[in-house]
Amino acid sequence: MTAPQPRALVLGGTGYLGHRLCAELTAAGWSVVAVGRRSVPVTAARLLVADLAGANISDVLAEAQPSLVVNAAGGVWQLSDQEVVESNAVLVDRLVAALGKHPRPMRLIQLGSAKEYGSGPAGMAIAEDAVARPGSVYGRSKLSATRAVLAATRRGQVDGVVLRLPTTIGPGSPHVSLLGMVSSALAAAVRESRPAVLRLFRLTAHQDFLAVDDLARGVLAAAQTREAVGRIINLGYGEAIPVRSLVETLVAVSGWPTEILDDAPPSGTDRLEWQQLDISTAAELLGWTPRQQLRDALTEVWAAVNPQCGAGSADCRPTHSK
């Protein structure tokens, strides 16, 4: 007799990260339900429309009947401090309470944030046991969510895993993110056949990053690894990558003449001047290491906003010189 198909519920499943997670789980044989606020096409999952801010999460769980819940919901940009707390910390409190009503613990994978750590000492990788010193409301709200998941796991209410993620790189990057702004500005310059001018804040930081494809692999591994339960696990490249070089590589991928001016005022106080993650726990527990090269991930970012050009296509060469 064949085993029943495992069921996964992805909260935020229609979003930038969630839709890629749905695709990975579906490809691995899971029956996936994606929860989103709006009715949008979801090719790799069944869609359940619900606004988690006001929905009865127990009803959502009863509808989906999952054995795995992945929380890819939450907010960071263009929200008030209270909205950030509600969409990250309060949501997870409600989720944990709903999961705790089930007769046996359910696997919960919480997508945490490297911003829970705050900036690290230059030249040193940050391991999961480092003291968390978040420098923003967002970082504090994600830390609160992490603590809620781990506390519920210790109580036996859930089988919780927290994956701590740096800034992710992949197609569909939010337009208000750094890569979203840069790729959109480059695409606009291509459409208008003019050189691009990027006016950015000071690009002096060194930060870790994570390709979305590698994130999806990490979630699948955490879903299948018993030893991950009750743990915080860093995912990333395991490198402190100069942010300026990230922007320059995206420009190079586009093949478009571009001037970079990094004299704009910073967009907020949540600045990580140095952050490198120790990803050895992911290798030991999950058998996970990053596979996608940084340039390949940035090529996917560019192709998503400018598909007719690809990476430096001859069809997109400027009609005039800078």
Rank of each mutant, 00 (worst) to 15 (best):
M1P: 10
R7V: 11
A8K: 00
L9R: 00
G29T: 05
A34D: 06
V35W: 02
V35Q: 06
R38E: 12
R38H: 14
T43V: 12
A44N: 12
A45N: 09
A50S: 08
A55W: 01
V60T: 03
E63P: 01
S67P: 05
V70H: 00
V76G: 02
Q78C: 09
L79R: 13
V84W: 04
E86W: 09
N88G: 10
N88T: 10
L91C: 06
A97W: 02
K101G: 02
P103H: 12
P105R: 01
S113L: 01
S113M: 00
Y117L: 00
G135K: 04
Y138F: 10
R140Q: 14
R140F: 05
S141V: 10
K142P: 02
L143Y: 00
T146A: 08
R147W: 06
G170C: 10
G170F: 11
V176L: 13
L179S: 10
A185D: 14
A189N: 04
S193G: 09
R199C: 11
H206A: 12
L210C: 04
D214K: 03
A216W: 03
A223F: 02
T225N: 04
V229M: 08
I233W: 00
N234R: 07
Y237R: 11
V243I: 13
V251G: 13
A252M: 13
G255E: 07
W256C: 02
W256A: 01
P257D: 11
L261K: 15
L261P: 12
S267T: 15
T269F: 14
R271V: 15
R271H: 15
E273M: 15
W274S: 11
Q275Y: 15
Q276Y: 09
D278G: 12
D278W: 12
S280Q: 14
L285H: 06
P290W: 01
L294R: 07
E300N: 11
E300S: 09
W302V: 03
W302A: 03
A303T: 12
A304N: 04
V305S: 01
G310R: 03
A311G: 08
S313C: 10
